[in-house]
Design a protein around this nucleic acid. Sequence first.
DNA 1: TTCGTGAGACGAACGCCGTTCGTGACACGA
DNA 2: TCGTGTCACGAACGGCGTTCGTCTCACGAA
Lengths: 234, 234
Amino acid sequence: MEDNQPRPPWQRSNQRKPARVPLTQELIVDTALAVLAEEGIEAVTMRRVAQGLDTGPASLYAHVSNKEELHELMADRVLGEIPLPEVDPAAWRAQLKDLLSAQFAALVRYPGIARVVMAIMIPAGPNLLRLGEVMLALLRAGGLSVRHAAFGCDVVGMYVKAFAQESSEWRGGLADRPETKRRAEELNAYLAALPEHAFPHTVAVHELFNEGTARERFEFGLDILLDGLAAKAE
Amino acid sequence: MEDNQPRPPWQRSNQRKPARVPLTQELIVDTALAVLAEEGIEAVTMRRVAQGLDTGPASLYAHVSNKEELHELMADRVLGEIPLPEVDPAAWRAQLKDLLSAQFAALVRYPGIARVVMAIMIPAGPNLLRLGEVMLALLRAGGLSVRHAAFGCDVVGMYVKAFAQESSEWRGGLADRPETKRRAEELNAYLAALPEHAFPHTVAVHELFNEGTARERFEFGLDILLDGLAAKAE
DNA sequence: TTCGTGAGACGAACGCCGTTCGTGACACGA
DNA sequence: TCGTGTCACGAACGGCGTTCGTCTCACGAA
């Protein structure tokens, strides 16, 4: 990150503050994502991001109008990292599944960003638009009507976002050791002590909650959705 | 809400502050839900709730340990309002669909509560437990294995929560007139001006975003999910 | 070379927020 | 009558998003 080479004297001479970086929107988003990856989403405050750039919070507002806008920029960047396939109509189902899995993975990699994505009402970022276009193309290639493709795109996207939110929130909460672990143990004890006549199924199922990775459960629902969408094709 | 009947004098005599109400957890949750219904979720602050009870924020902490706990209590209350059916194995699919629709309706009635429900990692409230039990019973009645029932319950519940969150957030944002309306118009103009060769499907579909009620789209995905789950039955 | 100008960095402050602490009022059993 | 413990609450702390006004400084015109 840092440039340790000795600078030519004519460059050092007239610069009081040694490494004055110009501070762009891109740089701000970079720093915000770094903070997110290391300290979680609620650490991404204007003050914390500014501190990561060795400046004050007021300096950010020249490049970003809001904390909300910063969050949207972060989300767009994260979802922009995933590679988009060339649409192959014969393989639309597999391609769509891969694409959605990649979305899931990208969202989970930055724990907490999924909540931000869910809060974005209108996906107007450039990367989000491209992503939506490809998903629509895949569904159309699968033989769905325009209407079904639109609805299906919506439903499937929401499923991925929601699962990523829950999954990463749980992971983020689990990483913070004492609180969540204690609650999980409490719940286990609570469920084990539950009156079995009143909650037979809950008791029967309760060990499955801790078992089964998030990815497994994610794919279970995803397959169901894709099957259902394929059945709507004409 | 208020009791305007004149009180017997012996009740009035030794009470300096005229209507000193004892301030219980239930009362706090009531007030919080009233604030939520009228002013949205982000108005539900400790200070605002306390103000609604004519007291200071510190007074709440005797009955509620956290803002987070308050939120969970609110969520449990809202989801507890929905009536649970007697499980009829022959009608499991219709019963499940009705139950999920009722969940959706309850979550949308208090705009913003869906986000809270999503953030609850472990549904340990009494009403949430009862709800889960019935959903599991319905899926088991539909012939699913324990494992599939557990996963299906998870998936379906998440779908409802996510859809309610998006839907109510949009509705909440729409009620606040100027900002969201402006963005929607901006997006319409933006999409209309989109290069059609690069985003053919997005352009073709863009009017469907504003059309089609949330409920319609909700049921579209719900039917797909239920079909898929029914197909897993043995 | 000098000077005006405009964009950007930033210190300080405002009004919120969640939460804690210490005090004080008050009902109740001894 | 007198502890005593519960609960309401005023005051305060630290942190947040955001705004305002000032100051620096590169750059083009004269």
